[in-house]
Amino acid sequence: MKNINRTEFQAFPYHLVEPSPWPILTSFALLTMTTSAVMYFHGFANGGELLTLGFCLTAGGMILWFRDVITEGTYLGDHTSQVQKGLTLGVALFIVSEVFAFLSVFWAYFHSSLAPTIEIGATITYAHHALIQGNRYGAILGTFLTIVLAILFTALQGFEYIEAPFTIADSVFGTVFFASTGLHGLHVIVGTLFILVGFFRIISYHLTDHHHLGFESAILYWHFVDVVWLFLFIAVYWWGS
């Protein structure tokens, strides 16, 4: 290869990202959300409206940012094997940090001291194996069923909250019950959205049998949320009842 040609190729497997507006815009969207949350909780004027705007800006920033990451991975080929290793490590570390977030809620519960249960880990595992084996139909079906069951879970949790005879302000149990199941419920909603993105990417041919890091991360996250639910179920619903 001549030197003049060599300069047209990247000599390393890493992804040097281009300048992006999303880190700074998302940071300020988070500032809007947290400031307005304080306003709302303390009864300041327009706190609720600004909180809604802050939430929409944060969610919008995330959607447009992730869209760019999908562009880089699927259309520009920036996610080499080396980059995939780094991303996988990042996802694993993120889930470890989530484990500790839930650990603190469990700590509060055990220190101080009703039930929808669905086996949704099975359908996503079926989808994952189908994807690896090149079975497009199975991957789509398994992911679709997972999303349906996930929505059912959130709906049942919603009914339970409406029907509960106590509130977040009733006793330590009420506080920790809604804090822990609410935190878990938020994670179920995020996990559902995560899998929904994977679903749309499967039907759009973005994912292959050997390159589907985003979907695999969603599955890992989903299993984490599933395991947290097992602990929550044993501690709060079974032992706590």
């Binding site: 969207a29 809007t32 802050g54």
Partner: peptide
């Protein structure tokens, strides 16, 4: 919407 949010945040603070 971001600009509206920033004006809102500034007056909020």
């Amino acid at each position: 919407f971001f600009a509206v949010g920033m004006v809102g945040t500034t007056t909020s603070i």
